[in-house]
Computed example of a mutant assay.
Amino acid sequence: MSDGSALVRVLSYNIRSMRDDTAALARVIRACAPDLVLVQEAPRFFRWRKKLARLARASDLVVLTGGGTAAGPAILCGLRATVERTEDVLLPLTPGMHRRGFATAVVRFGSARVGVLSCHLSLQKDERYDQGGMLLDRLAALGVRHAIAGGDLNERPHGRTFRRLADDLQDCWAVAPWGGEYTSTPADPHQRIDAILATKGIEVLSCGVPLDHPGVSGADLVRATDHLPVLAVLRVPAA
């Protein structure tokens, strides 16, 4: 664009370790034509790198970072993205709870530079709230003016962790709702627990579940995994 800004399509998707219909999953991702995919529950055990790479190839993307090294979150990207750096972060382990982490990167789309973070927050409310603070700290530590975070927050918008994040960042669906709102479960969508969030300098053009997106089959959405994806179209200013 003449002002140096970039339109960036971001998809956030919990893929349940690719235990469902991976062909349907790849078709959904490919139809959404994302520049970035913020994945949760990527494969993280036996041959996890090969499994994630296979999904990326089937979706016309490449693996940017994450997977087993981030305890599940991962980032895929298209060839428009120029990668500056990546870092996978493991969060403090609470005894008896599932290990969590962040997959993070700094990428460029032409003159637009943006930090990216994929997350899957705790099921336990106090641990989840602490992880929300760590997410905000991690975005700040990326050292970039503009940033995007997405993931399975395991909490509805009225929850205190969701509100904490939405106080500092834009809840993209609330800014420019489009498509469907609810992300869980595909067969009976009744709650929004997945979100894409952006720093306040980013313009949110649309955000929602791509229920009526060209090429996205309702049957594929049900077969692909146990969450519905969130797709956001964002305008990121030049750095």
Rank of each mutant, 00 (worst) to 15 (best):
D3L: 12
G4K: 11
S5F: 03
A6S: 14
A6G: 03
V10W: 01
S12G: 12
S12T: 15
I15A: 07
S17N: 13
S17W: 14
D21C: 09
T22D: 15
T22M: 09
T22G: 04
A23F: 12
A23R: 14
A24L: 08
A26F: 01
R27F: 06
R27M: 06
R27V: 04
V28N: 09
V28P: 06
I29D: 07
I29A: 04
A31M: 08
A33D: 13
P34W: 02
P34Q: 05
L36S: 05
P43W: 05
R44S: 10
R44L: 12
W48R: 05
W48E: 06
K51P: 02
L52W: 07
A53F: 03
L55D: 03
L55Y: 10
A56T: 10
S59M: 07
S59G: 11
V63M: 08
L64M: 13
G66F: 09
G66A: 12
R80F: 00
R80K: 14
E87G: 01
L90A: 11
P92S: 10
L93P: 07
T94E: 15
A103S: 15
A103Q: 01
T104P: 08
T104C: 06
A105H: 06
A105F: 02
A105W: 07
V106L: 04
V106T: 09
R108G: 01
R108S: 13
R108M: 09
R108Q: 15
V114T: 10
V114D: 05
V114Q: 05
C119H: 00
C119W: 05
L121W: 01
L123W: 12
D126V: 11
E127T: 13
E127H: 11
E127F: 10
R128Q: 09
R128E: 05
Y129N: 15
D130G: 08
Q131D: 01
Q131K: 02
L136K: 02
D137F: 03
D137R: 14
L139C: 07
L139Y: 00
A141I: 06
L142A: 10
G143A: 10
H146I: 03
A147V: 06
A149E: 04
G150H: 00
G150N: 02
R156M: 11
R160I: 10
T161C: 13
T161F: 07
F162P: 04
R164G: 02
D167A: 12
Q170I: 08
V175H: 01
P177A: 11
W178Q: 09
G179I: 09
G180T: 02
E181V: 15
Y182F: 15
A187E: 13
D188R: 13
D188P: 05
D188N: 15
R192F: 00
I193C: 04
D194E: 13
A195E: 02
A195N: 08
I196H: 00
L197K: 00
L197A: 06
A198P: 02
T199R: 06
T199P: 01
T199F: 07
L205F: 06
S206I: 03
S206C: 10
V209H: 02
P214R: 06
S217F: 14
S217R: 13
A219H: 15
L221W: 04
A224I: 04
D226G: 04
P229M: 14
A232C: 15
L234I: 09
R235K: 14
P237R: 08
A239D: 15
A239Y: 08
